[in-house]
């Protein structure tokens, strides 16, 4: 990080952009807490189904809806997103250490660890996979009869997870932009700060999902 050439004097010695991204993340805490609060406030207050954890029978048609949340699928997507955070730290480490000579006896794995392009790509791929799982989840919910208009659960669930998905999408685009720069001219230690900022955003989106997974999917 210190390798970044900062033209201007700063009072803390830190880069402006890193302070701004942390302030932004602080702000995002309030954004997601508003969404999560609303979801929890409306939990158990939907007047019609389908419902997240409970069966529901439509009194007019007699049709019974199964609990709609698909825990196995979402556990998979959660795992993928968690791993994307691992890939992200490896990408950052690779960028920070770019140009450092590898030891002569470096093995295949060591050489792979030094490839920022590989890990940026893996992070973006894991993010895109998570989004794929989410698209699958959303479409299957709609097919089963739950839309954003159906009930309080539908409105607050789709809005909360949709906002998170939008954040993941922005993160994937950001990663792809970094990847394209890396492919064009190679990212080195002087770019580490730019990658670090993206990484902070990415991990934050991940920790938000950690909270959502427990509060929405697991706690009944």
């Amino acid at each position: 990080m210190s390798a970044t050439v900062t033209h201007h004097y700063t009072s803390t010695g830190l880069d402006n952009r890193k302070i701004a991204i942390w302030a932004f993340i602080g702000s995002e805490c309030m954004l997601f807490i508003s969404l999560i609060s609303t979801y929890l406030i409306y939990k158990g207050r939907s007047v019609v189904g389908p419902l997240p954890h409970e069966k529901w029978t439509d009194p007019s048609t007699g049709h019974t809806f199964a609990p709609i949340l698909n825990i196995p699928v979402t556990s998979m997507s959660t795992f993928v997103l968690l791993m994307s955070s691992l890939f992200m730290v490896l990408a950052l480490a690779a960028v920070q250490n770019k140009g450092r000579p590898l030891p002569a006896n470096a093995g295949w794995w060591t050489r792979k660890l030094a490839s920022s392009q590989l890990w940026l790509f893996m992070t973006a791929l894991a993010g895109a996979t998570f989004l794929g799982f989410q698209a699958y989840e959303f479409t299957s919910f709609v097919n089963e009869g739950l839309t954003i208009k159906t009930n309080l659960f539908g409105s607050s669930f789709f809005t909360l997870t949709g906002f998170h998905g939008a954040h993941v999408t922005a993160g994937v685009l950001w990663l792809l932009a970094l990847l394209s720069i890396d492919a064009r001219r190679g990212l080195g230690p002087s770019d580490a700060l730019n990658v670090d900022i993206c990484a902070l955003y990415w991990h934050f989106v991940d920790v938000v999902w950690i909270a959502i997974f427990t509060l929405v999917y697991l706690i009944r």
Binding site: S27, E28, M30, L31, S34, L35, T38, I41, Y42, R45, S46, V47, I148, K149, N151, L152, G154, S155, S156, T159
Partner: peptide, 30 residues
């Protein structure tokens, strides 16, 4: 500001996409 942003998003979605955040009559919103 993030809090009013979300409150407004709910209202926007209610008005434009038919969500139920403030639909006290049919959906039991608070």
């Amino acid at each position: 500001f993030p809090v009013i942003t979300i409150a407004l998003v709910f209202l926007l979605f209610d008005r434009f996409f038919g969500t139920n955040f403030y639909n006290t009559v049919d959906a039991g919103a608070d």
